[in-house]
């Protein structure tokens, strides 16, 4: 099954600058894909297309289509966008942009509350997401009292709380110290290896059905949770090539608004010419051949 299908996607900003020149990309359910590319390649623009923030409705510079699961994104369809934004969780680069509410718990609750969850079901969802990133103990704290690594983990939780099918991470490892970087990698791997919902439920020993029935949620909620127990697909935008190799079996390179390479991460990173053509470089002393995959 396909989690994401992008077909000949083009986009020009209102000032005339064309950022995407026809992007085609298919990602299967449960895949972990790294999106590599130099600065200005159009990575962020592409990410904003994945949940319908771009393009604005009836925008002249936009063409092509993005399909998430079975649903094609239509920027003019507000109800459809709500569903898309539930299914596609974007973790932005600066966690300060993402965490805007006074406490961690409130912030994690923001997304699911927008989906209509209330009361115990909402609390359970918050605890589940925070437990998944190991931040349950910091529930009541203010975001600005956390370290950057902790804030980034909470930012991941804010998205996990919506039970996304496609998890998109923008430069997740930037500015993290080595330990925080490794911890985040472990969390991301654990998320995609087991279905998120199953993991959360078994950990907490909750009966989702019972909770939902108590809070009076309808069948829509139940089918949503059913979908969420499918493996999470992950798209990671990064410059951090070793991180891409550690976390993603497949990588694509985006440059000048086009996908220029697509293949197993190890192979792409071993092709020095390809990397050099697209302003990508491995860190000094790092060899993709000797690194064992986790």
């Amino acid at each position: 099954m396909e989690a994401l299908r992008i077909e000949s996607l083009r986009y020009s900003y209102p000032d005339g600058h064309q950022a995407l020149h026809g992007v085609d990309l298919r990602i299967g359910a449960g895949e972990r894909v790294a999106l590599l590319g130099p600065n200005g390649a159009g990575k962020t623009t592409l990410v904003l297309h994945l949940n319908g923030i771009l393009p604005a409705p009836r925008m002249p510079g936009a063409a092509g289509s993005v399909t998430v699961g079975e649903q094609r994104i239509d920027p003019a369809d507000r109800a459809g966008l709500t569903e898309i934004r539930r299914r596609v969780g974007i973790v932005f680069q600066d966690p300060d942009d993402q965490l805007f509410l006074p406490t961690v718990a409130e912030d994690v609750a923001f997304g699911p509350a927008n989906l209509g969850l209330r009361g115990d079901a909402l609390h359970a969802r918050v605890d589940e997401a925070l437990a998944a990133v190991g931040m349950l103990d910091h529930k009541g704290r203010a975001p600005h009292h956390l370290s950057l690594g902790q804030r980034r983990r909470v930012a991941v939780a804010t998205v996990l709380a919506m039970r996304p099918e496609l998890l998109v991470l923008d430069e997740p490892s930037s500015n993290l110290d080595p330990q925080a970087r490794r911890e985040l990698a472990e969390i991301l791997l654990s998320l995609t290896e087991s279905g998120l919902a199953e993991r959360g439920l078994t950990e907490r020993g909750l009966t989702e059905r019972g909770l939902l029935a108590e809070s009076g949620l309808t069948e829509r909620g139940l089918t949503e949770s059913g979908q969420a127990s499918a493996p999470v697909t992950m798209l990671m935008v990064t410059h951090d090539l070793p991180y891409a190799l550690q976390l993603c079996e497949r990588a694509v390179i985006l440059d000048e608004g086009r996908i220029v390479a697509d293949g197993p991460t190890g192979e792409l990173l071993a092709d020095a010419d390809l990397l050099a053509r697209h302003r990508l470089e491995l860190p000094f002393g790092f060899s993709p051949h000797v690194t064992t995959m986790p």
């Binding site: 904003l48 949940n51 923030i53 507000r78 709500t82 934004r85 539930r86 596609v88 969780g89 974007i90 932005f92 600066d94 942009d97 993402q98 805007f100 923001f110 997304g111 927008n114 989906l115 804010t158 998205v159 919506m162």
Partner: peptide, 13 residues
């Protein structure tokens, strides 16, 4: 603007 985008991504209306 970025905060607003991040909020929108989580269903803010």
């Amino acid at each position: 603007e970025r905060v607003y985008l991040a909020m929108q991504s989580r269903g803010y209306t």
